[in-house]
Amino acid sequence: MALDPTTIRRIATLARIQVDDDRLEPLSQELNGILGWIAQLNEVDVDGVEPLTGGAQMAMKMRDDAVTDGGYPDKILANAPDRNGAFFAVPKVVE
């Protein structure tokens, strides 16, 4: 399962990271090195093993349905790189 430059390009697009063409080859080598090393997991017999999702072994608590948060648009917008009035602004999107 080698990561060729085309795959790197696809993955980078999915991850929304702009990668220059001349970086594809070195990235491909680095990532393949890591993946090759990770491939040792294929030795492990995992038949019938239930996957473990997280570190906590308990059931989830639920909170009551009450309005306890929000109502501070100034704080929400305070760090915005671009805003227009009470809206965040981004380059125009065509749907």
Binding site: R63, D65, A66, V67, T68, D69, G70, G71, P73, K75, I76, L77, G85, A86, F87, F88
Partner: peptide, 24 residues
């Protein structure tokens, strides 16, 4: 519901922009 699925901000319709928003 009164509040959102994963946060305590209001789920009501039609408020001023970004007023019913928590950091979550």
């Amino acid at each position: 519901s009164q509040s959102k699925l994963f946060s305590g901000s209001s789920a009501a319709f039609g408020a001023e922009p970004n007023t019913q928003v928590s950091f979550v």
